[in-house]
Write a protein that binds this DNA or RNA. Structure first.
Lengths: 148, 148
DNA sequence: CGACATTAAATGTACCTACATAAATTTGCA
DNA sequence: TGCAAATTTATGTAGGTACATTTAATGTCG
């Protein structure tokens, strides 16, 4: 659906203005689609993302610093998101023996199992079915260029 | 800069996966750029957006329901954002005489003046300089198609 | 009229972001 | 060695999002 219709605005000052609104709106839409997929499993989107990073490292541990580096949102608070995952026993936290300032964070078996169940539902790919491979490449290239 | 370098990931499962990350990352980047522009004026981005909607209505009032309809983020809490603006005396709130359930919200002269000062800095257009008019149209069309 | 549903806004709660600051440990260098 | 600087995580606080619930006013219909 055209962005004009989504937000009930008939015209835009400029193509810039429209692209800005379209981009922010679409990203929010996507995130909400994903969040809905996780909710039945009791996970928020940031919690899911961190769990996936930990699975990527498994069976090696990750530090908070590594999580922050790989998160989309650099300034968010990985420490407190790990708190929530630890409460649910999806991850473990242990002082790193080699560097006692750091903390080794590992995904548990329960965490791996949960991700396995979610993967079928929550993949981003599902929401891009209406774009061809070529259009996806175009989109990626435009977004990269935008941030220059 | 390419998204691979921004988040230090060397490869993606698919072009879908990459587009998802690119989109969410870029939207966050844009919002943060804007938020930085408003901060010197003591406004958050949602506060700025609501103030702009109110300017669009001025001198007519808006209700909370109207604000929600026009906001990008429909489920956010317009009522509490208006609280903050009222504290700063940038808007006024008065029970609507015609329907005492509703509330008439108006931007004040101080609010209009603040927007006037910000407009030069905070416009979205500024962040799309690296894309041509044609590329902007392409981007808009891809994003619209994505949400189908 | 009077009970009941509907509407508009406000409030409560859990989680998140953004940013500043604190606490503990390690590192580097005089 | 000893002490300041840097590193790593945790915590405090203000503002936002998402969603459920509450409160007050209005509409509806017997």
């Amino acid at each position: 659906m055209r962005i004009e219709d989504e937000i009930k605005q008939t015209s835009f000052q400029s193509e810039h203005q429209k692209a800005y609104i379209n981009l922010v709106y679409t990203a929010g839409w996507l995130q909400q689609q994903q969040a809905c997929a996780f909710k039945p499993y009791g996970l928020s989107l940031p919690q899911f993302n961190i769990l996936r990073i930990l699975r990527g490292q498994h069976p090696l541990p990750a530090t908070v610093a590594l999580l922050i580096e790989r998160m989309l949102d650099k300034t968010s608070n990985a420490s407190r998101i790990v708190d929530k995952l630890e409460e649910k026993q999806l991850v473990t936290r242990k002082v790193c023996p080699a560097n006692r300032r750091a903390v080794d964070i590992r995904i548990t078996d329960a965490g791996l199992e949960l991700l396995r169940r979610i993967d079928a539902d929550g993949t981003a790919a599902k929401y891009f079915g209406s774009l061809t491979e070529d259009e996806l490449r175009q989109l990626n290239s435009l977004l990269d260029k935008l941030r220059d």
